[in-house]
Design a protein around this nucleic acid. Sequence first.
DNA 1: TATACGTGGTG
DNA 2: TCACCAAGTAT
Length: 362
Amino acid sequence: MNANDIQALLDWYRASQRDLPWRRTRNIYRIWVSEVMLQQTQVVTAAPYYRRFLARFPTVAALAAAPLDDVLKAWEGLGYYGRARNLHAAARQVVTAHGGRVPRTPAVFRRLPGVGDYIAAAVLSIAAGEPLPVVDGNVLRVWARWCCLREDVRTARVRNRIRRELAAVIPAAAPGDFNQALMELGARVCVPRAPRCAECPLAHRCAARRAGVAAALPVPPPRRAVPLQRAVVAVIVRRGRVFIQQRPADGFLGGLWEFPGGKIEPGETPEAALVRECREEIGTAPAAIAPLAEVRHAYSHFRAHLHVFVCRLGRGAAPRVAAAGRWVTAAELDDYAFPGANRKFFPQLREWLRSESHPGGG
DNA sequence: TATACGTGGTG
DNA sequence: TCACCAAGTAT
């Protein structure tokens, strides 16, 4: 990629870039938040979260001072909740170890939780002018086509080679624009399925385009089968309230709230699994159960089929681990961060609670 | 190095 | 319905 190619790319970017909320600031904290949200997440999905998050946590100090539950609530529905936990922890480190100022030294910023090679390069090139190339999915695709690379670009070896090649050409005068231009090109023109080469400022010198194989690159990795997990959910109702509990702070959906329940074992009926899970999780079997909904949900690495039941405990029975849980009304559910798979049956649950509170009505 | 980690858009 | 994909990081 020579100076003319780079200028053509920058010209295209400056003339046709989208007006995105994080492009209206050079504040390093705001740029950082945007890049965390944009991991494995499309611009249209992240944008509303970005606005709400920064209205709620306008500074790194405000984020550090907030309870993690508030941060997770602001992240609810965005997925990869470890991003929110790491960002929150990193904000606290900035306050406690860096005097409340986001470090602009690459090696220092890179050590914060949740900051990897991509985030460090993106944030510091955009907000601090550091000539660090980003290597994300867009850049890999653009570069694989530009060079007509037939190797698997996801391997560390090829990624590192691409990073070195980009480091040799990234313009010191505009590293942030160069990085964003490559990503913008990948997101809007050099797209995966049907690249719009007619609109591409680099098409006339693109090796894959000349070879007529742009759409076939980069070569996709072999796909593995996605397992299907059947599970039960117990919505325990008592006097118009439902029982919820918080998941462990780390790991899958860490820190989010949910209803008791769990996997259906092979050969087990949903009803049997429900009774078993209630005994295991809250020490009590339900006295009565009724099906409420069935939910299908695709997680990052498996699919789930949820059988949701409304349950009542016997007179005087109580969840044995009530200290870890709460009884909440339908309205109060909105105060807690729930996984998307749970949100899917909230309408049915709310309708059920409504009809129960007005017996004989409607 | 390979796998865990969410969700929604898109064809 | 479904597979693929998206401004990746941690372990």
